[in-house]
Write a protein that binds this DNA or RNA. Sequence first.
RNA 1: GACCCCAUCGUCUAGCCCGGUCCAGGACAUCGCCCUUUCACGGCGACAGCGCCGGUUCAAAUCCGGCUGGGGUCGCCA
Length: 431
Amino acid sequence: MFKTRFAPSPTGFLHIGGARTCLFSWLYARANGGTFVLRIEDTDTGRSKKEYLDEIIESIRWLGMDWDELYHQSDRFDMYRQYARQLIEEGKACEKEGAIFFKYEFSQIEIDDLIRGNIIFNELPKKEEVIIKSDGSPTYNFSCVIDDALGGITCVVRGEDHIPNTPKQILMYQALGFGVPVFAHVPLILSPEGGRLSKRFGATSIREYRNMGYLADALVNYLILLGWSPGENREIISLAEAQKYFDISRVNKSRAVFSLDKLNWLNAEYVKQYDKDRLGDVVIDFLRAKDFLPESYDKGYIIKVMALFEGRITTLQDIIDRAYFCFCDDYGYDEDTREILKKDYSGQILVLKDTLSQLTDFGCAAIEKEFRAVCERVGLKVRELVHPVRVALTGKKVGPGLFEAMEVLGKEKVIERLTKLISFWKEEGQE
RNA sequence: GACCCCAUCGUCUAGCCCGGUCCAGGACAUCGCCCUUUCACGGCGACAGCGCCGGUUCAAAUCCGGCUGGGGUCGCCA
């Protein structure tokens, strides 16, 4: 039976690195039909905060992971102290300056690591380790060993920054008479600058990525690819599928640099391939969180707007920035559209307006047919009329396909906005 | 400083365990071309890599050793 765990400390938000470690641990358990435990390492009572804990739990859920057990180390202090006392009685630990120290002898220690093979330590820098602090709380190394042993964790999956802790912990397992589990130290994630993923790099917490408009499925897919590969040149893979193929021994030993470019590509890819109805729900949630959702919104309309921008946006935030005209009428014409609006096409647009207003089928195919016919009638190339009309309808120089956009906006708004452009030219002419 | 980890295109990686099929495959990014009402999407193509040295071998990205480079840890933080 496989059993793994993820043991976050609620002293900060869940960041990219932690999420990836959690993911690999979860994947390893699920790929083998095992169980997964969430253990909250809140032994540092001063630094642990409930808001961090809530954020961590929310992020893990958002990414699509679940767990079979969840417990807090802060509920188990008595137990840790009991084991420490046992060590004192056995002469393996001693009380000093109000704290309890575990004493150990040097010996060669071998770590059984699923990712990097065996790691051998020939020397340790110290010969004693604090296990119970003077305030009565346990230290990380001690509570970690006891919980992993008692919880029946078969493989400890954690970041490679814990490798130096492992020999000390193995000594504790042995002193306590527990069996030693297998380990899997996953490599760290580096920031694009090469250093550790931290303050230097803009966004590090999972929540920030959510706020920026990344899809959970895309972010998870990206994280899965960072250090592991399903092979066969596959890049797009869901959590559910990764669960089938994940093999922890194939996780890379080397550190990986976080690439926002690749995440962006994956996110755009997911936006394109996502089930339309589901994307609608996700977008609605996002817009609501951003306080951009109209009081009376129509999911069908939002799905149509998304179709308009499919292949043109990378994050959900782009909808707010670029599809503003789909939700509001109070936009002005961008500065960079001056060149397009320089020439006055009022006459031709008036013809277009009249023709379109008589159209009964306001579908994009019919609109395009009429639009081209009008161009021919007034002696303009299609491109000459397309650009000013786009500015009229969107306020922008670039945007979605014009005829599709017209269909989505509907006849009434199109006519209204064309009229507005004609009066814009009128005013310009008077100045 | 001590202990430990790592090393394939700029980046993520396949290949490495079981040497030849690899003058190293895919992807992102970049740059061209095509498509086109703009921007994109898409299609096609280009650029670009086995850190170095030595060994083993008929043959090494693949095995061994050394070097160099990068990283982690050395808290009554986790």
